[in-house]
Simulated assay, not measured.
Amino acid sequence: MANSKRDLFLKRRMRVRSKLKKVNAGRPRLSVHRSNKNISVQLIDDANGVTLAAASSMEKDLGVVGKNNVEAAAKVGAAIAERAQKAGITEAFFDRGGFLFHGKVKALADAAREGGLKI
Rank of each mutant, 00 (worst) to 15 (best):
V50T: 13
G88I: 02
K11S: 14
E59G: 06
S35W: 12
A112W: 03
G88H: 04
N69D: 15
L117Y: 03
K106M: 04
N68W: 09
G98P: 06
R83Q: 09
G26W: 10
A79W: 00
R83K: 15
G97M: 03
L108M: 09
A109H: 11
A72H: 07
L10E: 08
K75R: 15
Q42P: 06
V64L: 02
K5I: 05
K75S: 10
G115E: 01
K5Q: 11
A74W: 14
E114R: 06
V70Y: 01
A109F: 12
L30N: 01
R17I: 02
K21Y: 10
H102P: 00
S18G: 00
A109V: 13
D95L: 00
R13S: 11
T51L: 09
L62H: 03
A47D: 13
S18K: 09
F9R: 11
G88R: 02
G103P: 12
I89G: 04
R96M: 01
G98K: 04
V70A: 13
L108V: 11
V70E: 14
N24W: 10
M58I: 13
N3V: 12
G66S: 01
D61H: 15
R12L: 06
S18Y: 02
I119R: 01
A53K: 08
L62C: 08
R17T: 07
R29I: 03
A54E: 11
D95V: 02
V64P: 00
E91K: 08
E71Q: 13
G98H: 07
R6T: 10
V105R: 07
K19C: 05
F99A: 10
M1I: 14
G66W: 01
S57E: 07
N48E: 15
L52D: 13
V41E: 04
N36L: 15
R17Y: 06
H102W: 00
A74L: 13
L117I: 05
A79V: 02
A92W: 00
F99M: 07
K19L: 14
G49H: 08
M58P: 09
E71V: 12
R113P: 05
R12C: 04
D95I: 01
G66A: 03
L52K: 14
N3A: 15
R15T: 06
M14L: 09
K21W: 12
N3F: 14
R17C: 04
L100C: 07
A73V: 12
M1E: 12
A87Y: 06
A84W: 01
S40Y: 11
E82H: 03
L117F: 03
D61W: 08
H33Q: 13
E114Q: 11
V64Y: 00
I119L: 15
H33N: 14
K60H: 05
R96N: 00
A78T: 02
G115H: 05
D46V: 07
A84H: 02
A54V: 08
S35C: 12
K5L: 09
Q85D: 04
F99G: 00
P28C: 05
V65D: 00
A54C: 08
R83P: 00
K19M: 10
K21C: 06
A87P: 07
A92L: 03
A73D: 07
E82M: 01
R34F: 10
V32M: 11
V32T: 10
A84K: 01
A109R: 04
A47T: 14
M1L: 13
A55C: 05
V70G: 05
